[in-house]
Design a protein around this nucleic acid. Structure first.
Lengths: 185, 185
DNA sequence: TTTGGTATAGAACATCATGTCTGATAACAA
DNA sequence: TTGTTATCAGACATGATGTTCTATACCAAA
């Protein structure tokens, strides 16, 4: 139904430039201090060109972080087969590999939109895991909703702390810690 | 040494007006959408008057949230005698009593500065509790720093979830849940 | 109640970022 | 080559910021 035509080469170039500008500026000065002016200066793109594609700064970020979001989902699927409840090890490894970027997006002065995106992804994962587990309600009377939120928030908090403190432990150790802290048996 | 003179009655009036304006505007439209123009309009205060006392919007917020921060500390002391590790029950009760304000400050579109302030307070409390406990390192090899961060973040996450979802359970139940989820014995 | 000090109001002002719109130009796909 | 379309450069209105000025009103203390 939706007739999707491949975008013009010029469009691709423009968007690529803006994406690159956004990423470098996030690492340099933090997202909230970036202005549209900064973006079009760095990308060397006309003012009207920016507004031809995006309405706001957030617009650009959202379409950009689709990539990051897809990554999370992809990793979640990878880990699903491993039997672990949450894809913690994979996440520590992946975020560690791109720590410059993720520290700027999750750490102290992070980007709310990105944090919410990742939290939402983790929450969905935790929920589906708990729902599929038959003995999920045997040990506790705490609603699944609450436990899933707890698992997601705890992992996000550990990841954020890890990045903020310049990754003092290897991903494997962080995974162990997460498992032990959230094991309420 | 520091000769602290009581502030002029006019100064007190102005600051009080700005504080009231800030609080009502936070609840109404959220902190990030507030402009200095909004504040001086609502407070009915001259533009130059605002800048005579504060440099930025954040300046006003910080001096304002000293009150909230002091409240947290006060509650922490109250609870210390009760023997519980974290002042969770007191916090759920207090935030529930002022849920309109705290939902706007902690919830989905919250205020980073306030969140960080509260988290910092909780972290300090958790750290001192764990440090004073003699058997703190018997059961686990996880560093105190990490466990304290986990306790603080978990409580903050539960509080935030509770406010965002319009407090579906009473404070007493939330306290139970928190104790059970963070009991890793 | 007066007096000297000071906070405030009101307004003007420069600056900056935003978002819209125009016509001319260049690059594109077919 | 041709018709289409993205881009550019620039102008423009708007709104918020932060500074500065003077006259005025208020205050605390004598």
């Amino acid at each position: 139904m939706t007739n999707e035509r491949p975008p013009d080469r010029r469009v691709r170039r423009t968007k690529q430039r803006l994406d690159d500008a956004l990423e470098s500026l996030i690492i340099e000065k933090g997202y909230d201090k970036i202005t549209v002016q900064d973006l079009i200066d760095r990308a060397d793109v006309g003012r009207s060109t920016f507004y031809a594609h995006y309405e706001t700064k957030d617009d650009l970020l959202i379409s950009w972080t689709q990539l990051a979001d897809d990554m999370e989902l992809h990793m979640a699927h990878e880990q699903l087969d491993a039997g672990s409840a949450m894809p913690s090890l994979t996440l520590f490894r992946h975020l560690g590999e791109h720590h410059h970027l993720y520290k700027a997006m999750l750490g102290g002065r992070g980007i709310d939109i990105v944090t919410e995106m990742i939290h939402s992804t983790l929450l969905g994962h935790a929920t589906s895991v708990l729902e599929r587990r038959p003995d999920a309600n045997d040990q506790t009377t705490i609603p699944i909703e609450v436990r899933a939120g707890f698992l997601a928030s705890s992992l996000l908090a550990l990841l954020t702390w890890w990045l903020d403190n310049d990754r003092p432990y290897p991903p494997e150790r962080m995974d162990e810690i997460y498992e032990e802290l959230t094991k309420t048996t």
